[in-house]
């Protein structure tokens, strides 16, 4: 039978079903080889730049001499020194950094599957790097997310950061948000405040409870999302520990933020009481543990209604 005649849809399906899907490659192998290949690529780019520079210098030697003779003092480019940008607070699993590492501009941080890293980004806020991600610190206020996902929760108003991706640049406007990139799409999920996405010549903004999705070859779509739940689980796992030390209102606000909840008080009396209460402890706790411990210590109770954390004083003794 002629092979050309045989390949209608059904026969092609039958043939391909004999083969079955091609085996997937272990994500860890992909990550390892990608890191090495990426470094090799950058080394080659640097090598090419050096070769080009030498070529230009040779070709322009005569012109340079003239410039030297005619301009008494010229300025030579000064290499920009690497600046300390962030500190590693927590890691889980396999990452390219260790707790306590100082991260400088130009540094790359990567995480293996089922791992994460939590960094304190100067006084700008908390940066969490999800499993299977790779970022590069381009500047003191800018990272490049090559793949994977990050979450950023700002702590200082007026110190915005930028997350650059191959699809566009995300800029925070005092907020908490997640940026996720894969081969085909960029997803920005906003938990708090406002985020701006610059893509080609357009700017899109999204507030808390919304996401922007930019797929390759198409425009940006916006949809409503929940600010808590399974999609944010990794963010909670990667949260820096909370220490019950300081004003109870501040501690509860920090816990609520990590949980993606809005903090409210049952009434004004409770609010005033919480504002007057100070907590003094030094044990680092996960956010859910901290909520139980803080309310217990301050003789309060809490309940969660949807995305609201309600603090009350009528704790059962």
């Amino acid at each position: 039978m002629d092979i050309n005649d045989r390949y209608d849809d059904e026969q092609l399906a039958a043939l391909l079903k004999v083969a079955g899907p091609r085996p997937a490659v272990d994500a860890e192998v992909v990550r390892r080889v990608r890191v090495v290949a990426h470094d090799a690529w950058h080394a080659e780019l640097r090598q090419r730049a050096r070769r080009r520079t030498i070529g230009w210098l040779s070709a322009a030697a005569a012109a340079v001499i003239i410039v030297i003779l005619t301009i008494p003092r010229s300025q030579s480019p000064t290499p920009v020194p690497a600046v300390r940008v962030a500190t590693v607070e927590r890691i889980e699993g396999r990452t390219s950094v260790r707790v306590g590492d100082a991260i400088k501009t130009g540094a790359v941080v990567s995480t293996a599957p089922e791992s994460f890293a939590t960094l304190q980004w100067g006084d700008r806020g908390s940066l969490r790097i999800a499993a299977g991600s790779r970022i590069r610190f381009d500047a003191t206020d800018s990272i490049r997310l090559e793949h994977g996902a990050i979450y950023f929760a700002s702590s200082t108003p007026g110190k915005p950061i930028r997350v650059q991706t191959r699809f566009g640049t995300v800029r925070d406007i005092g907020t908490a948000f997640e940026v996720r990139v894969d081969r085909k799409a960029l997803q920005v999920r906003v938990r708090e405040g406002l985020v701006e996405l610059q893509h080609e010549h357009s700017i899109e903004r999204a507030g808390a409870g919304f996401q922007l999705l930019l797929q390759e070859g198409s425009g940006v779509t916006r949809s409503a999302i929940s600010t808590r739940g399974a999609d944010w689980h990794w963010v909670l796992l990667a949260a820096p520990p909370i220490v019950l030390d300081g004003n109870a209102h501040g501690v509860l606000a920090a816990i609520a933020r990590e949980e993606g909840l809005t903090l409210v008080f049952a009434d004004q009396t409770i609010a005033a009481r919480v504002n007057r209460t100070s907590l003094h402890d030094h044990v680092p706790l996960a956010p859910d543990e901290a909520l139980d411990a803080a309310t217990l210590a301050a003789d309060l109770s809490y309940r969660i209604n949807g995305s609201t954390l309600i603090i009350d004083g009528n704790r059962k003794r």
Binding site: L16, V18, A19, R22
Partner: peptide, 29 residues
């Protein structure tokens, strides 16, 4: 059958960008 499967998978891998993927998505998945 195993060798045939291996060969077909090898052909899918050798096709230009995305061709192997779209065939696999459409006819296997």
């Amino acid at each position: 059958r195993k060798e045939l499967a291996s060969r077909i998978q090898s052909i899918l891998d050798s096709l230009p960008s995305h061709y192997g993927d779209v065939l696999e998505w459409k006819y296997i998945d």
